[in-house]
Amino acid sequence: MTEQRFKSVFDIIGPTMIGPSSSHTAGACRIGKVVRTIFGEEPKKVEIYLYDSFAKTGLGHGTDIALVGGLLGMDPDDSRLASSLKLAYEHNMDVSFSMKKEKADHPNSVRLIVSNGKKTLNILGISIGGGSIQISELNGFKIHLSLGTPTLIIVHKDLPGMISKVSSILSQNEINIGTMTVTRVSKGDQAIMIIEVDQKPNKQILEELRQISKLESANFFE
């Protein structure tokens, strides 16, 4: 056994979701939502590249609908999911899809490039089965974000002291950091912290984090 990818009983008994496919619909929706959260706002322009099984059977499974639903902030059990493409149009979200021929490391892979004028985010997500997902690349950086564990995603300006401000709030509240990944678009530009934590931060702690100057967003994924 190399890696314990599935940790919670609710990875197996769940999620509750709109059909038809946990990997191609629910997983895709979750990837879309994570991308939106890391981006920090609703993107205006979205380029979606589907690989392998996602490219070959994704449209029949509603992968397109689900990714866009997630980008609009929906969860996998949102009854509006089926009409997400229409909603995206109404939100002036410019979405394009491309089916890629080349092989990816995992058959259910998708690359999303989202932008809003000058800000761009490039993420490679994979759907590993049963609705569970991983993020394996972020703005060209190889990362390993499983989202099976409680994870904080913080978007902030790349300035000295940001990491210590965040970690001191977490330590004051007795939240232990398991792993931490920090990456940035470019020096002094936007940066992202991905923090796996052992304890769940409550709303008050999230609010406290959001009060940090030059911190754009702080979100928690269970």
């Binding site: 769940g14 509750t16 709109i18 059909g19 496919s21 946990s22 619909t25 609705g131």
Partner: peptide, 17 residues
């Protein structure tokens, strides 16, 4: 219901719910 894009619980997946 799953094929109708209705609400189901994946156990372990939607296709096998």
């Amino acid at each position: 219901v799953n094929a109708q894009m209705g609400l189901i619980c994946a156990t372990p997946t939607a296709g096998s719910a």
